[in-house]
Amino acid sequence: MSWDTIFLLANCWAFAGWIALAFLPRGPKILAAILYAGVFLLCLAYTVMIVGFLTGGIDAGGSGGGDFTTLAGVMKLFDSPGGATMGWIHYLAFDLFTGLWIARDADNKGFGRIVQFPFLFLTLMVGPVGLLAWLIVRERRARAQAKR
C-alpha cells in the first residue's frame, strides 16, 4: 500500500471519528466507538508504522538519517512520504483524543453542542489552539462545580 493511500485512509478514518463526535448522540456506545474504532486504531497504525520504521522493516521513502534529537533531524524525518504520513497520523490520533476529551468534559459541565462546536473545530484544525481555548472557557464552570 502506498504512503498516499495510507495518508488518505487515515484522514478519512479520523474525519469519520470527528463527524461522529460532532453530530451523533454521545451515548456510551458512540463514545466507545470513537475511542476504540477511532483513536485506538489510529494509535495502532502509528505504532506498527513507527516500530517498523525504527527497526528497518518499513522504508519511509526518504534519504534516511533523521532523528528526534535536533530540529534538523526531525525535519529530515518529515522529508519523506512515510515520515510525513506517520507524523500526520500521530497528529490525527492525538487531536481526535483531545476532541473526545473536550466533548466529554463539555457535556459533563453542561455546555451545549452549539457552544462546543467551535472548540472541536479548532481542535480538528489547529489542535493545541482548540485545547487552549477550551481550557480557558471551561475554567470558571470547573471551579464552580468543584465548590459544590
Rank of each mutant, 00 (worst) to 15 (best):
W18Q: 11
W18H: 11
I19C: 15
F119I: 06
K76S: 02
D95E: 13
Y91V: 05
C43G: 04
D105E: 15
I19R: 13
K29I: 11
L42H: 09
F111R: 14
L21Q: 08
L24Y: 15
N108K: 13
G64F: 10
F97M: 14
Y36A: 03
M86W: 11
I114F: 03
D105H: 14
V126Y: 08
P128K: 09
G130F: 00
Q116W: 01
G65Y: 12
R104P: 00
L42Y: 10
L42T: 06
A84F: 08
P81L: 01
L100A: 08
G66S: 13
W88F: 04
G82N: 08
M86N: 12
M75I: 02
I19G: 08
K109H: 15
G56F: 08
I34H: 01
L24P: 06
Q116T: 12
G62T: 06
A60L: 09
P25V: 15
L122F: 10
D59P: 00
G130H: 05
V115Q: 09
G130K: 06
L44F: 10
D107F: 05
G38T: 12
L41F: 09
G99K: 11
F94V: 08
I89P: 01
A106L: 12
L100I: 10
Q116A: 10
A32R: 14
L42G: 04
G66A: 13
L132T: 11
D95L: 05
P128L: 13
L31M: 11
K109A: 13
F40D: 04
V115R: 13
V48E: 04
S80T: 03
G64N: 13
G56P: 06
P25G: 14
F121A: 07
G87C: 06
F78T: 01
G57D: 10
F78S: 03
I19E: 13
A93I: 10
L24I: 15
S63I: 09
A37L: 14
G27H: 14
V48A: 11
G130R: 05
L122P: 00
F121I: 12
G64K: 14
G52D: 07
G62E: 06
Y91P: 00
Q116Y: 03
I89E: 00
F23I: 15
L42E: 04
I102N: 04
I102R: 03
W101Y: 13
W88C: 00
F68Q: 09
K29N: 05
G130S: 06
G99Q: 07
T69S: 09
T69C: 02
L41E: 01
F23Q: 15
V74I: 12
L124D: 01
G57W: 14
A20W: 10
